[in-house]
Nucleic acid binder design. Sequence first.
DNA 1: TTATGTGAAAAGGTTCACAGCC
DNA 2: GGCTGTGAACCTTTTCACATAA
Lengths: 211, 211
Amino acid sequence: MKVAEPTVERLVQYRRLLDRMDRDKVQVISSKEIGDMLGFKASQVRKDLSYFGEIGKRGVGYNVDRLLKHVSDILSPPRKWNVGLVGVGRLGEALLDHKAFLSDKYEIVALFDVSDEKVGETFFGRPCFHVDDMPEKLEEMDIEILILTVPKDAAQRCVDAGTEKGQIKGVLNFSPSSVVAPPGLIVYSVDISVELEKLLFYLKHEGTESI
Amino acid sequence: MKVAEPTVERLVQYRRLLDRMDRDKVQVISSKEIGDMLGFKASQVRKDLSYFGEIGKRGVGYNVDRLLKHVSDILSPPRKWNVGLVGVGRLGEALLDHKAFLSDKYEIVALFDVSDEKVGETFFGRPCFHVDDMPEKLEEMDIEILILTVPKDAAQRCVDAGTEKGQIKGVLNFSPSSVVAPPGLIVYSVDISVELEKLLFYLKHEGTESI
DNA sequence: TTATGTGAAAAGGTTCACAGCC
DNA sequence: GGCTGTGAACCTTTTCACATAA
């Protein structure tokens, strides 16, 4: 089944909210309540949630516990993924320490860098290897996802090294540059400075958008 | 004039590319070349660039120098903005040190945190104040933009503190939570874990998307 | 009465195709 | 011939409106 990207993005947020509601012992929630808390229209929430079957009760709302399980099932990968992080700078370390990256669905198992001071060391319990050894290490450690926190000129080389033996399936690119990827490789880019520039643009133009 | 958000996002990338081309002494570039380098269709590039007037030469392409000035004019804010960063943790420090945040259009002039060890210190040359003093300090220092690198439970309080005296116009939220903002306040959220979750979802579904 | 589920309509963006100019 | 500019077509996503069920 094909799911639109904006829908997936909202599903992740629904799960996070439902998880909190569940811990707070909330039993029932309506599409309007969900929408108000996350900044979406109630009709949008209903469309998203009904996409995978009727899960709510008309006249009542959604059972939090049941809906949480349902959304989690939709989002959960069938197995755990091994992740490699390239570029152990400040941003890389921040991500390593990031709570969001504590999950049972993926695990950062190896780090890569070019600095002699970092190669051979461990950071937050993960070993750091040299970028030149990436093709072999990725294969050896069964790594299929790369997180890139490298300078802009290095991003493309990292993607190339990751696809050399063909096992990398996804890349999360935090460097301020676009990368060219072979078909089949999924690349998501989070460009921090672009976000700030967009904000400045709409500030300048006195817009009223809120995302 | 109303400009679509995806267009602004691409404009920022065009400028970055043109800046590099200009430094490399490239004089002329076509919409196809731009598109190939950034992963957009040539027709998309032309639509974006023609949106603000005819700037290219038919049969020739775009003059890099002229186009760069043009795109910069569209994006440049009319004045410099003062920015406050809340939450001097690893991510906050990574952003402080981020090259993308070196700009003549904005400057991080103050930091805020709750930790006694950080309040009163300076980080990368910026003074750190207590979060409780935000309303006064923001007004005093003429800060209109906030960057939030705080834990999820603190994000909403920061927005509330920033809007208490009404001067905050934009927020860039890096915390993994949604915030409710009064109308007129522009909030952009960069949710690192959501991006990874999206990637995992499409990996699971063996899609062929590339963004 | 209340809140979901869902076709249909509207809005928002992208791509096409070709006229127009170099 | 080559490449831009752009209306029209197309596709995607959101919102509406109301039938339906608790």
